[in-house]
């Protein structure tokens, strides 16, 4: 059956070993980064590198770099929805105080953390 299919995108394969090597080096950096102890650097090495690694896996291993654009749109729409969800519910879930109100329940527990 598989022969009748359009063998879509018979593209040349990149050097996967090199990509794997880069990913492992990035992994090592992201583990070592926090050991320096600068919070901003930790954030960048941890999450910045995670994004880079994810993009590399998506582009080269999942072949999104040669895939039809519509796949990107599918994934981006799903991701966008999650960002939207995060920022819209953040005022409720993350901050428990506003201009004219505050949540008593969370203030009791987190007073030492939130206010200082």
């Amino acid at each position: 059956m598989s022969d009748s299919h359009p063998t879509s995108q018979a593209h040349p394969h990149p050097n996967y070993f090199k990509i794997w090597g880069t990913l492992v080096i990035l992994l090592i950096v992201s583990v070592l980064g926090p050991l320096i102890g600068i919070p901003l650097l930790t954030l960048m090495t941890a999450f910045g590198i995670a994004v880079v690694k994810a993009l590399m896996v998506a582009a080269y291993f999942m072949h999104l770099n040669v895939e039809k654009k519509i796949i990107w749109y599918i994934l981006l729409i799903c991701l966008t929805l999650m960002f939207l969800f995060f920022f819209v519910i953040a005022p409720d879930i993350m901050n428990h105080e506003g201009t004219n109100w505050h949540s008593i329940g969370s203030a009791v527990k987190n007073s030492d953390v939130v206010h200082h």
Binding site: F85, I89, D92, I93, G105, S106, K109
Partner: peptide, 13 residues
């Protein structure tokens, strides 16, 4: 459970 660090509003969202 708000008393233990969770948030019932989260479910509503």
């Amino acid at each position: 459970d708000a008393a233990k660090g969770g948030d019932p509003m989260l479910w509503q969202h």
